[in-house]
């Protein structure tokens, strides 16, 4: 599998570079103006990467679900909140790398995003293409992983110590986006999620599809939405029956962007913040009761 991925990367990447150079020589077609206001789009990433040398600080917060109504003021006072603090840096043009800490499962994540192609104004390149990858470490106590008994395929239940590799999870995504006009930008994507350790009833791998976008309604404000669907694929399932926890993540909200900040306030049905957690563990069905308020604030500094 690893060799196969390496093979694909080695064959595809050089050609994209050659292709890009070729385009540059033929026409001086410039990239479209900011297809998105920020690199974040609720729970997803956009193909937009700020200018090189940019440092970004992000605060992502999700409150509890609104189901209890006034008693916990629609989840604002609920104890089940999740928060992530993150720093991202753009060392090279169209390449961003970052680190984040989340409360849920005490995740520490390292991530990288590379916008391989930018959509151009004259449609020489009609879409933007980006790759996004996240590796996260579950930092909880060993006891949080169960009683130390781990299901090992073919060997049944066995005693295991939780080692570092068991805490790792990965998310990789291909994002394709297009700015259709000055008020509409849409993205679609496909992703692969892998957890090194899951409960015996679950799968280690999950493939998902993504659809998200923004609709500008004033120079600074837009309506934004996400739809992330983990797919039930029998062929890759390790179980006789494809396990549960396959709820799609639906979220929608408002984004306000200024020179250095982006504010997003939204409602959604996933408690997780990092993408692999959402794709693998979202068990909240999409219903009014399962929606929770959340917000994202980003601040950028240019160096």
């Amino acid at each position: 599998m690893k060799n196969y991925i390496l093979f694909v990367l080695l064959t595809v990447v050089p050609f994209t570079v050659i292709f890009a150079q070729d385009e540059e020589e033929k026409v001086k077609d410039r990239p479209v103006r900011a297809p998105f206001a920020s690199g974040y789009l609720i729970d997803n990433q956009t193909t937009m990467i700020p200018i090189e040398g940019t440092l970004e600080f992000a605060i992502q917060h999700k409150f509890g679900t609104v189901e209890n109504g006034m008693s916990d003021f629609f989840g604002i006072y609920a104890p089940a909140a999740n928060i992530r603090l993150a720093l991202n840096y753009v060392p090279f043009k169209n390449f961003q790398t970052g680190i984040g800490l989340s409360k849920e499962r005490m995740y520490t994540d390292l991530n990288a995003k590379w916008t391989i192609l930018e959509q151009t104004r004259e449609n020489t390149i009609p879409v933007a293409v980006a790759l996004y990858g996240v590796a996260a470490v579950d930092g909880r106590n060993e006891s949080a992983f169960g009683n130390g008994k781990v299901w090992h395929s073919g060997e049944g239940t066995a005693e295991f110590d939780i080692n570092f590799a068991d805490r790792l999870s990965y998310f990789s995504q291909l994002i394709i986006g297009r700015k259709f006009n000055h008020w509409l930008s849409l993205q679609t994507g496909v992703s692969f999620t892998h957890y090194n350790l899951v409960g015996r009833k679950f799968d280690h791998d999950k493939v998902g599809v993504h659809f998200n976008g923004r609709v500008n309604f004033s120079p600074q404000s837009s309506f934004i939405f996400n739809y992330d669907a983990p797919l039930k694929i029998e062929q890759i399932s390790e179980q006789l029956q494809v396990p549960d926890h396959h709820q799609p993540n639906v979220s929608f909200g408002i984004e306000i962007a200024t020179s250095t900040h982006a504010f997003q306030i939204y409602m959604g049905n996933a408690k997780g913040i990092i993408p692999q957690d959402i794709m693998m563990w979202n068990s909240n069905e999409f219903s009014l009761d399962n929606l929770a308020f959340g917000f994202t604030i980003t601040r950028i500094w240019n160096f």
């Binding site: 004033s218 120079p219 600074q220 200024t258 020179s259």
Partner: peptide, 14 residues
């Protein structure tokens, strides 16, 4: 015109 207006709203208005 619209680009200028957008730039102003984003970077200058505050």
């Amino acid at each position: 015109d619209r680009v200028g207006k957008m730039m102003y709203a984003k970077h200058c208005k505050s």
